[in-house]
Design a protein around this nucleic acid. Sequence first.
DNA 1: TCTAACCTGATC
DNA 2: GATCAGGTTAGA
Length: 287
Amino acid sequence: MPELPEVELVAAELRAVLTGRKLRRLRHAHADVLSYGPGLDAAALSGREFTGAGRRGKMLLLQLSPSELVLTVHLRMTGRLAVEPADSDPPVHCHVILELDGDEELRFTDARRFGRMQLLERAQLAEDSFLRRLGPEPGELELHTLRERLARRHGSLKGALLDQSLVAGLGNIYVDEILHRAGLHPALPASALRSEESARLHESIDVVIAAAIEAGGSTIRDYRKPSGEFGSYQLAHQVFGRAGQACPRCGADVVKIVVVGRGTHLCPDCQPKRRRKARRTRQVIGK
DNA sequence: TCTAACCTGATC
DNA sequence: GATCAGGTTAGA
């Protein structure tokens, strides 16, 4: 469900709500959902204090003291965290409940049960298989790095951008929106981008992600902030979820195709497949 | 690098 | 009843 902008907003809200709060104890946990690093167990959670919340890619990092523990949370498709009154009924599919001070609970809900939480010592974070493979955050991705990485790839541009080791945090919605803004077809070979195209792509990543955070993220069906608030960036989507509707930029019908197994939305006019004429022009210039 | 699999619910 | 879903990953 959530991509970088949504996870960023969840982290910000949890930072505001949880920092300084005591974690009394673990009240409930589905064994498949919450796991523990070496030497840790449920008892290690009792009596801790939340000292902050952050994010790396789509992974939430909740910091606990003393002794530098980190609770990692990946929401995957339908995961949601919420701070709710302890005397309220936990929602269906609530898989982890942490009792807080002030008669509230931090609850993790996830209909599809793809999401994962893990309690780790800070030093163990570097060994986490997901975090270890993450590429740079969009804001730290240099243009020359993007170019080098795309040039080395086979396969489609969309597949490359969804690969968390190339750049961290992009998912299906934002890749479609970024490629539309950059005027690039998702199925283009990643290694085929010209200089000005990769520059447009680089800029579009920053612009789209920043605008999405500004708008509170995208709520397609499940995403809510911990407070229950919906995002509004879905209203600004140019192509995602808009198959058959007019492209806001040119008026052509947005189409939906499948690329790397994912539903992919694009405007065939704004995001043309490479034409032979254009390629020949480039070769002439190249000489 | 791509596909199928992991789960459940919503929608066609 | 079949298909699809905002993510990740083992295995081909």
